[in-house]
């Protein structure tokens, strides 16, 4: 599903330098990415999503080399194939829960809003226990409920790859557990690959494998 070959990425005017020799993730595999702050976990996710491009090396997702796509194509590819969930939920406070979940269909020309999407949204909300909040605004929800909305939005387009950047970072342990279960269940239902950043080593057991990014970088530096 994901293949990274000899990639190197550095931000301009910064000492940060991310190098990975080789990384491969199979389809439907679930991976927890761990490592200390500043080691490049979020950068790696952005590289895989195509939000950033490596200075050298190649990254392929679903057999498509991200770097070979033009900006618009890359964006379209990301919207159609990848679901992203962030720690800060990224919900728009002036939209209802329902509108937030289907937001990718509103803003992207690559996705078309239709009745089926609304049904998927409602079914997902039902499974994640937020169906009664569909017409509420995010401000009316608890933190855990807001994160569930973010998970639903990340999965609403039934992506092949889910990139989650510490989606449980703001939650208590009970909610962390519920969100991880939810994410993995939904991913399993649609056969999606999951790559999730976490600081909680205890959560790694819930994934097929964990990836220590610092170790991976050290390997590449040798």
């Amino acid at each position: 599903m994901i293949r990274c070959d000899k990639i190197r990425f550095a931000y301009p005017n910064a000492a940060f330098d991310l190098r990975i020799d080789s990384l491969e993730v199979r389809k439907s595999e679930t991976i927890a990415v761990v490592g200390p702050s500043g080691c490049g976990k979020t950068t790696l996710l952005n590289l895989i999503a195509g939000n950033l491009l490596p200075q050298t090396g190649t990254i392929s997702v679903a057999d498509v080399e991200i770097g070979s796509l033009k900006l618009g194509e890359r964006q379209k590819f990301r919207i159609q194939k990848i679901g992203m969930i962030s720690q800060s939920f990224d919900l728009l406070d002036y939209l209802t829960v329902r509108e937030n979940i289907t937001l990718p269909y509103r803003v992207s020309g690559a996705l078309k809003m239709n009745r089926a999407v609304k049904k998927v949204c409602e079914a997902m909300a039902e499974r994640t226990g937020i169906v009664q909040h569909l017409e509420k605004l995010p401000a009316q929800l608890s933190t855990g409920e807001r994160q569930r909305v973010a998970v639903c939005r990340g999965l609403v387009n039934q992506p092949e790859l889910i990139l989650a950047d510490e989606p449980t970072g703001n939650l208590d342990s009970e909610n962390q557990d519920r969100i991880i279960s939810l994410l993995l269940e939904e991913a399993s239902r649609i056969g999606a690959t999951v790559m999730m950043i976490t600081h909680e080593r205890v959560l790694c057991d819930r994934f097929d494998r964990s990836l220590d990014l610092l170790a991976l970088r050290r390997e590449a530096s040798k």
Binding site: Q75, M84, D90, L92, L103, P104, V107, S108, L111
Partner: peptide, 15 residues
């Protein structure tokens, strides 16, 4: 911040 979220969700620069 909202616009950067929308950008990540697929909104193009003209939108």
């Amino acid at each position: 911040e909202e616009f950067s979220h929308l950008r990540r969700l697929g909104a193009d620069v003209w939108t």
